[in-house]
Design a protein around this nucleic acid. Sequence first.
DNA 1: ATTATCATTTGATGTAGGTCAAATAATGAA
DNA 2: TTCATTATTTGACCTACATCAAATGATAAT
Lengths: 188, 188
Amino acid sequence: MNSHLDKINDFTARLDIETLTALNAISVEKIFKKGNFLLRQDEVCKKSYWIEKGIARKYYLNDGKEITTELYFDNDIAVSFDSYCLQKPSREYIQALTDTTILQTDFGAFQTAKQQFPKLAKLDLMMTEYYAMWLEDRLFQFHTMDATHRYLKLIEDHPYIIQNIPLTFIASYLGISLETLSRIRAKK
Amino acid sequence: MNSHLDKINDFTARLDIETLTALNAISVEKIFKKGNFLLRQDEVCKKSYWIEKGIARKYYLNDGKEITTELYFDNDIAVSFDSYCLQKPSREYIQALTDTTILQTDFGAFQTAKQQFPKLAKLDLMMTEYYAMWLEDRLFQFHTMDATHRYLKLIEDHPYIIQNIPLTFIASYLGISLETLSRIRAKK
DNA sequence: ATTATCATTTGATGTAGGTCAAATAATGAA
DNA sequence: TTCATTATTTGACCTACATCAAATGATAAT
């Protein structure tokens, strides 16, 4: 979902072989079936999830209602951020919306590897920076754009999203009701 | 504004003397008069600003209207984040709301220092993480709380804010109109 | 003190988007 | 194919908050 991720992929692709090997050594490929959870509320987020192929979402419950905070596609990185950083129980769920192949990297092992491979530390900072910029942009959109414009921006950035994800999740992600999203789509 | 900053202050306070000395060597104390700008739109944010004493705000213009994105008090750190990270022109202004003493650290010098002093790199990551968590929390508040509750949360966290900052800025920061804020305050 | 400027309140009215309810449409299992 | 479940649309109504306008209150300069 984070459009800056191209740059992170570039950076990762250009890592020297030793660093890349070290990263691979602490990463495991896994497959999650549609509907399954990479992470549930109250669990500590001990892995970062590189989505190789598939779609996932992150959400939390607010008095019974699901609020989707992020949608993930190929090459996105999913974590419950504060849970991951502080290794404390997560407020959020991360769920596969399709069968999804991910590369998961262990938090502890990554912290250790960073000390040996400075480029991994650099990568960590870079990913965090881009995530913060993405959050700033999301806040910006909520402050300056109405529901229709937020929707248009979303399908502009991710045209395929409509084919693949139930509208409830998209509506929630956009911060509007399902009905409003439906009406926006009906117009024009 | 970032309540996690206590932890960063703790971390900074516990730095070894060499690291602290290196940090001091690239930092300069400056005083900004009320109303003056630490940073203007279109300038590159080449410094980070540690607010030692005073109040400041960050904002941008959206078709002529100011949107306040952050309020800073003693011991907060102010930067225009994407401008600082990517060293590109800033969309945002940073302005002193009172006479303000700041300690400013040069971006380039800090990047260099990080290579020599790993703890500075750690500090950099830590600050970025806390900023991202703060942004997440702000998004959370916009998603789950109405104007009244956001206001109550704000004065709970920063009781002194009312005495010191014109309501327009607070309203804008809360994402509501000046009039609505006034009405919220009138009740109870 | 007096006036000009800025900050805050109060009132009247408009609107984007929410909520509730019911009707279709699509999907999937037997 | 048929039924059951889930997703989407449509309609009627409601509400939180915006906008515009004008009054009042506070600050600061002359």
